[in-house]
Nucleic acid binder design. Sequence first.
DNA 1: CTGAAAGCGCTAACAG
DNA 2: CTGTTAGCGCTTTCAG
Lengths: 333, 333
Amino acid sequence: MATIRDVARLAGVSVATVSRVINKTDSVNPETAGQVMKAIEQLQYEPNAVARGLAGKKMGIIALILPDILNPFFPALARGVEDVAHKKGLTVILGNSDDLGLKESSYIKVLKKKYVDGFIFASNTIHEEDVEALRKEQIPIVLLDRGLNTASCAVIRSNNREGSKLAVKHLIEQGCQKIAHIYGPQELITARERMLGYEEIAGRLREYSPSLMEQGDFDIESGRKAVEQLLVRHPDLDGIFAGNDLMAVGALKALHERGIRVPEQVKVCGFDGIGLTEITEPELTTIAQPVYEMGGLAAQILLDEIESGIRENKLIELDVTLIPRKSTHKEES
Amino acid sequence: MATIRDVARLAGVSVATVSRVINKTDSVNPETAGQVMKAIEQLQYEPNAVARGLAGKKMGIIALILPDILNPFFPALARGVEDVAHKKGLTVILGNSDDLGLKESSYIKVLKKKYVDGFIFASNTIHEEDVEALRKEQIPIVLLDRGLNTASCAVIRSNNREGSKLAVKHLIEQGCQKIAHIYGPQELITARERMLGYEEIAGRLREYSPSLMEQGDFDIESGRKAVEQLLVRHPDLDGIFAGNDLMAVGALKALHERGIRVPEQVKVCGFDGIGLTEITEPELTTIAQPVYEMGGLAAQILLDEIESGIRENKLIELDVTLIPRKSTHKEES
DNA sequence: CTGAAAGCGCTAACAG
DNA sequence: CTGTTAGCGCTTTCAG
């Protein structure tokens, strides 16, 4: 592997000059530059990223810390991040935090030592101090689905409240009158927002009652259990809005087990728009988030910040869209 | 951030000594070592990974190149890799190759410059030359699901042929007599092996015919299409063994659309054991690969190789297991 | 067992 | 516009 020295020698210039033409960091006489370029070509020279990193404190790597890549929500996010990073020549380090603050801290600690250029946290448990610490060291961060309180960096999320309202309105349009909601863990702002959206619309219904809400954990099993509870209290419910798709799948399962037909007797709507929703029977109506785009956008903002050195601090809220499918289909009368 | 120099100064020794106690690379007087340790504690010293990388050509990073993290087979693999890597203090870079040889080469090029310690390729299109090149540079590699021809590094895969035999035998036990097979792209050794396993067992059936096989692309849509073709030729088939779970899901969909009941009229079995198989209706019988374990093992072997510097070159074939579910359930008579 | 010093390959003042 | 040189922080001979 040729080094910058080899290039300098062959081109008959100093390493500084070579560095300049590579990084366009200073003007260089076009002719000299030409010589250098030629030498680079000839030697097939490629700058060593590690040496560069040591000198400049940037390795051309961004870190993506998410709860668990096994959760079907995250692969699309990861892909979104990776695609834009790769396009810009950066690489992505993946970390699974399991929503453990400690694991997040541990990733941060290790990755800082590797001079990663920036962090994207899609994790729900980052310690405020960790964010502050990174901020202080001028390491760019982008947060996904976090509250406003952490106003010291860019935050991306989708419009959860509006999405919920969309969902409930849709259920009503399809003829539902008694709509239950399975909400996610209330530590998560997304879960809270979705619940609020539900209450805002469902609260107006004659049949509404707070007991139409039941907690879940954003996983399939909890969705199933929640429905079992709900059916005890409200055997006559005719619509279920689950706080995410996994719980909606669980709901579908519970209903199926009980011989309750979807959508004829009960209509079900999820949230997220993950691929699973297309393979259930019936296919699941859902509020789709632009997950891939969110990942791409997060990466984009992060890269901009890395390049410019300017912190953006903005909160971006993306629109969601209703994808009507069989599970909420209105029977023609 | 304290440097090794600070530690040396505080401990009253040379940097070389500090380096020695950190890396246990040479014996040091226990007392001196103690001093050094104390200094390290006091200064909260953490060695800089990039400087280390530049000096030693290893960044404590491994690269995982797979076709597409969006394919539900890969998250578990990635998680397996990441978990063991993280346990050993290494980090994982993720690359999506889309099974494009060019993209793989591009990842290799970029990552070599970053002194990654090793590569895991779960991708199907690595150029033989690329592998050889890495080999020559002594960069450890582990391959997943590759043929034997690339005998120059460790290869992990699961016993696809036996798995297929298991599947077909199971279908026969459940009463199937005319079993079709949807096979995957024949460039993939996994797809070929599964097909061979099918032929070996199904070939003995009275009703067997080569026209019971139809090609698919390992995705849902192709599974659906394949079944449509198969039903034209063999309206009376009573079992389908799909080369992977996604195609099995497609098969389920096609059958459902045609009003053919599973498992009563046709039984369906998939291959892989991805999570999707638990949420279809009916739930899908499948041959499960230990995907998470495969990832963990790949990482383990890679790390061993990185640490020892000894190439292992072994081929490891993991066992698969039949997971019987509703989609192949035999009706009690 | 320990220290001095030469890199690893590149960037970024600082002169000129 | 260009060259010299001092780091970045650590590892690793080579002496002692």
